[in-house]
């Protein structure tokens, strides 16, 4: 587990990845590496707990777009929760919220994905 990925767990067949720190290119790749491994193993639902990520850049977020695209091939879904307001706003501006879902809490995310 690298420093950016704080933990991974599974609830109700949903893979939950908890991040910590700056979502830049390396952070994005760390998330996508886990997602692609899990997709290869048959998982199709993913949540990112971004409580520890207060800063992002568009390069890191672009990698989330790549994950969304990959998940479309397997009829999968991705969502996010515990977002800082500026992270949520960035996701809106870039259009991620058209293809994935932002939730407030883990309970809401697990039940709503």
């Amino acid at each position: 587990m690298n420093g950016f990925i704080k933990s991974t767990k599974e609830i109700n067949q949903i893979v939950i990845i908890e991040t910590d720190g700056y979502l830049n290119n390396e952070g994005g790749i760390a998330i996508s590496t886990i997602c692609y491994e899990k997709i290869d193993m048959g998982q199709t639902k993913f949540l990112i707990n971004m409580a520890g990520t207060k800063v992002v850049n568009s390069i890191g977020v672009s990698i989330l777009i790549e994950i969304i695209e990959k998940l479309q091939e397997v009829d999968g879904k991705i969502g996010y929760y515990n977002l800082a307001p500026i992270v949520s706003k960035t996701f809106n501006i870039m259009g991620l919220t058209k293809y994935s879902t932002v939730f407030e809490t883990e309970d809401e995310a697990v039940n709503g994905l």
Binding site: S62, I65, Q72, M94, G95, K98
Partner: peptide, 13 residues
């Protein structure tokens, strides 16, 4: 526009 990037062979950045 995200619509022009997803599902197409477009650079995501």
């Amino acid at each position: 526009k995200i619509e022009n990037k997803i599902g197409k062979n477009e650079r995501k950045r």
